[in-house]
Design a protein around this nucleic acid. Sequence first.
RNA 1: GCCUCGAUAGCUCAGCCUGGUAGAGCGAACGCCUCGUAAGCGUUAGGCCGCGGGAUCGAAUCCCGCUCGAGGCUCCA
Length: 616
Amino acid sequence: MRILQLHCDYVEFTPVKKEIKSAEDIDPQTKRLEEIVVAFIAVEEGDNSEVAKKAMSEISESMKKIGCKRLLLYPYAHLSSKLASPSMALSVLKEMESNIHDLEIYRAPFGWTKSYNLKVKGHPLAENSKTITAGEEKESTSEALKAESKIQSFWHIMTTDGKLHDVSSFNFSKHENLEVLAKYEAAKKRSVDEPPPHVKLMKKLAIADYEPASDAGNMRFFPNGRLMKSLIERYVTDKVVEYGGLEVETPIMYDSHHPSMESYFHRFPARQYNVNSEGKQLFLRFAACFGQFLMAKDFQMSYKNLPLKLYELTRYSFRREQSGELVGLRRLRAFTMPDCHAMCKDMEQAKQEFRKRFDLSKEVIKGLGLVESDYEMAIRFTEEFYTNNKSLIEELVQKHGKPVLVEMWKERFFYFVLKWEFNYIDNLGKASALSTDQIDVENGERYNIEFIDENNKPQHPIILHNSPSGAIERVLYVLLEKAAKDQKEGQKPMFPLWLAPTQIRIIPVKPEFLDYCNNLADKLTENNIRVDVDDRNESVGKSIRDAETEWIRYILVIGEKEINATMLSVRDRKEKDPRNLTIEQLISEIKEENKGKPFLRMNMNRSVAKRPQIMV
RNA sequence: GCCUCGAUAGCUCAGCCUGGUAGAGCGAACGCCUCGUAAGCGUUAGGCCGCGGGAUCGAAUCCCGCUCGAGGCUCCA
């Protein structure tokens, strides 16, 4: 059975003519009802009296929440494509009608073409749809999800002097990406008809690919991609630990009926993967929050321990995003999310910590190879928070150093009062969030996390939710899109050196120089450089071409000249002409460039000839 | 969820409109060449033309249905 439930100021309907033979015999008068919940209902194949009972208890429960006592059952075939027979449908509807006693109930006639007219109320719970089937649990659409679109937002641009400007009158001429973001967010619309360029690149460079045997949005990562992910993960984790985060690990699935989860679901719109096991209804986490909050609840904390920062890099978090929005690495259903929560004793401490994490996020983004013109900041808050904390918000915008998109909510609907994020604008004008942080004033209580304050009283902490980089897969997407942009502008695309799967390729002019090449590669490897040797029996030209198409930064061609001298001929992707360097000079140049970044060994056979061909 | 497009060799695709022996490039295997900064040459192997039905003497090609995939829209703390 499918139900669309609307809370209305009024509804009017007029039976026009009988649509089927078995239509009810009634007096075709116009009927008007006020202050009423209208339930449009399609009875489907297999629906029975159990379904009727379930449906009525669902409906009356939600009506209790919105404080309405009048109900109209309205037969509405168009909600389903596998309708029950008319006689069955009518009997199920009649059963629903007779099943309820504490509501004033009406039913529109069955089998008639009707004209109708109604006015839906504007509040968050006014609209609701349900699917009810016999036997198994119904799959409900989160009411929060429905309600979200109802929140009233006011959009502005804040300049670094703290002034708010109207989006429509702001001069975006020097801030094109911000304009894209503002339009993208406020209008939530953008039409493009080509795939984003990173999709081709992720395959061509043997980083990642779709896995048709899995669910959409669950990618496979080839050795190159796995290496790059590992490096980014290591880097972000190092940075968070340096900041004071304590790394933990928590389960990836949770009981949907755990009390904290149930209430979180109502508040937090998300489409989760569900897993049934031995009668338990489990869901796959869509954030690290659950695990960390449940863990923090079991800590005994004093105000002296705060702020306490827990960190987890979730491999994976899962969200069952709508199939249509899954494109390449931009948005996935399984993703790796660094997530750092800080429990703070009060708003003052929270604000102080919030500043630190803003700096941390900026630093991490920079380390990943993005410059400030690559991303745009958006900041969102409730009107009340803004009024009381103007200086914090202005300070963040000033630190960002350029105008910021502002979304202000009249009332708090989410669990947070303040949130910012950095958005990357890709080649198709799509915005995706990278770093983000939030001030959460609700979940401390929901999860019953407590600390003892100066007066020996238990208190709930304010919790900050920070991801300094955003999803790791999304970082890859951004790096690829950025490289594609460089390519489009006529520059050679490349990765930051510390992330390049191969940093140096050695190409012998003849096979007899292979031993020399391998010795050279040994020496470079000892110095934490990822180096491989093209030992295929190919022409030098071909080998160089292949190395270039793999975006390899340094190419060393080894022939008689190099073997008989100390200078290497170094082809540097960043330079036009080859340079002559000693091996020591080359090593120290690379070390200097990779300073402060993690190192992992090559994740491919050194011998190019021994590699399988992953992507052309 | 809605709309559009697609599915042919390991990969990228042509052939389809106008029905009549299944094509190319890359890659792979084998051989030749032994090479100095972006593609050296040759030979060979490799196909249930997504699945099911229909009309036809005959279907990769036309029609219908299905499956899977992709892209867009919607949505996105």
